[in-house]
Design a protein around this nucleic acid. Structure first.
Lengths: 230, 230
DNA sequence: GTCTATATGTAGATAGAC
DNA sequence: GTCTATCTACATATAGAC
């Protein structure tokens, strides 16, 4: 049974302003802590402590722990999809012929830009997206929040490879997404492996966007057209 | 303090045969369960139950929960590095000039091949490697188990891009690894996104090796030489 | 809507008999 | 080396006063 199909605890009146503030504090705290510790590594008590509310309020505003987790992922998913689709539509309305890299940028840039410059909540959300995308346990959330937009982009990408196998395009897209998520979660590995000074400043993350788009474009053009996969 | 620097519980004699069998059962069960549920999502009681031993034996043979987790990752890491380095040395000893894709294949193929055909324990181990690589919490394990070999391969890759920034090569390598790990953990997303029939058979995983190598080669050649990153 | 108090279960770890 | 029994802490969730 999906955690998303269950509605929130039924309430009889519209929530008060005070309630909305409390609720947001709880969701914000949960976002930060879930992103850092994962679902199983974070307790509702941790969340209540960080939000400065008693434990019972976390259940009241967030529902069960699973519902709370899902609620947080859903919260920003529409906004992220909006940014991506808006960029894509703007591109298609423009005068230039579509390029593969431009399409890829429409998908990648909103995520990276917000992870880099959207403040700690968006950075946490970026990590949360990586958790959800990597763990089959959350596949229902992925399917509801991310797959519709992803499929649209796969269609756009596939148009650059006429006659190609759709599962090859999908695989290339998944590789691209995994590289994108690595930007938000694994830059510490890049630093460790390049023996460079630490790069703790999240602002430079944005510098890697063009690198990522180049990598994905080159990878797709090299792999999808080749007959490597039957 | 690293979990790896602590030695195992001191024992005065070499373990008996019976002990070795019990220990292996415990480690195998832990490998399967940690890979499926993650560190925090798996209890020592689950592991003891699956191994068919009392809980106390898990502590006796595995040490603390963290030590047990680290022990499992370390257990196959040397073997994996061996396979990769042996393949690389074989390549360099051969008559042909090195190609980038051949070098990449040396790194990628042992992992994919064992995830696909090495049985359930190796498949679980592949997922475990993905967990360790994605979570900064395990960076000390990454550094001990995987970074030395990774640095050697980055050196080899960098030789194909003279004058390039080492952190760019490292980033391209991290992207490549993230795509490799996605093969072992996220093929369900490919199936969901391509609307294809499920692909539950792990044997076809190996078919994707060439696709992955192509993707990585194309991505590196496109991204590293371009001046996208200062 | 909020919060105290608590019900109920499970976690990791170990002491000490065998 | 093995295993029973248990210690202590913390988990999620809710009942019911305010």
């Amino acid at each position: 049974m999906s955690v998303l199909t269950k509605a929130a605890k039924p309430r009889q009146r519209a929530p008060s302003l005070r309630s909305l503030e409390t609720r947001q504090r709880i969701l914000d705290a949960a976002e930060l802590l879930f992103a850092h510790g994962g679902f199983d590594g974070t307790s509702l008590r941790d969340i209540a402590g960080k939000a400065g509310v008693p434990v019972a309020l976390v259940n009241f505003h967030g529902g069960s722990k699973q519902e709370l987790y899902a609620r947080i992922v859903v919260r920003r998913a529409d906004q992220l999809s909006d940014l991506r689709l808006r960029a894509l539509h703007g591109l298609k309305a423009g005068p230039d012929r579509l390029s593969l890299s431009a399409v890829l940028r429409c998908f990648v840039e909103p995520y990276i830009e917000r992870a880099a410059n959207g403040g700690p909540q968006w950075l946490a959300y970026a990590r949360l997206v990586a958790q959800v995308s990597a763990d089959r346990k959350w596949s229902d959330i992925s399917q509801r929040c991310f797959d519709p937009t992803a499929k649209l982009f796969i269609d756009e990408i596939a148009a650059f490879f006429p006659g190609s196998d759709r599962s090859a395009v999908a695989a290339g897209f998944v590789f691209t997404v995994s590289a994108m998520l690595a930007l938000a979660t694994s830059m510490w590995r890049v630093d460790a492996l390049s023996d460079s000074a630490a790069r703790p400043n999240p602002a430079v993350l944005a510098n890697w966007t063009v690198f990522l788009v180049d990598f994905a474009e080159g990878g797709l053009k090299r792999a999808v057209v080749s007959p490597g996969v039957a």
